[in-house]
Amino acid sequence: MSLSISLTINGQPRTIALDDPRVTLLDLLRERLDLTGTKKGCDRGQCGACTVLVDGRRINSCLSLVASLDGADVQTIEGLADGDALHPVQAAFIEADGFQCGYCTPGQIMSAVGLIKEGHASGDPERVRELMSGNICRCGAYQGITEAVLEAQKVMADKKGRNAA
């Protein structure tokens, strides 16, 4: 049995011949498409390391079956930078030292991109901490993560303002 699934991954249309209905989006990305930037930390939606954007929304890719995603637009950490130019969230994570081991980082960054896009974060650090709490960082880089989200948000708003002007 093989299912044909159409996905757009990081802007590229892909047709996936899915030989097994049990495959999650996370395992598809990591084990079958060589997109290993997205990480598996718990495989049950508890840690956030596998966060990607599907149709612009943040999801835990370990909890999504590929078979249910026909036609979806998927963005992963690999699709964030524009060539060598880092996305403002990526640059802010480096500057604020928002990671140590780096394993949860792709998920943290995709979460941050999602929540900034959703317009939920505001400039309130307390609110950012709450909204980033679906992503566990065992190294304890939370202070840097919060700073990075606030800074990236500001940079992106300024850029948007400049473009509008």
Binding site: R30, L35, T36, G37, T38, K39, K40, T76, I77, E78, L80, A81, L86, Q90, A91, F93, I94, E95, D97, F99, G102, Y103, T105, P106, I109
Partner: peptide, 19 residues
């Protein structure tokens, strides 16, 4: 200084064992 492995880690290109 910022981390030498910073760009690798924020772009998903840092390779961990299971990758």
């Amino acid at each position: 200084l910022t981390r030498r492995d910073g760009v690798l880690k924020v772009t998903g290109r840092a390779t961990y064992a299971a990758d």
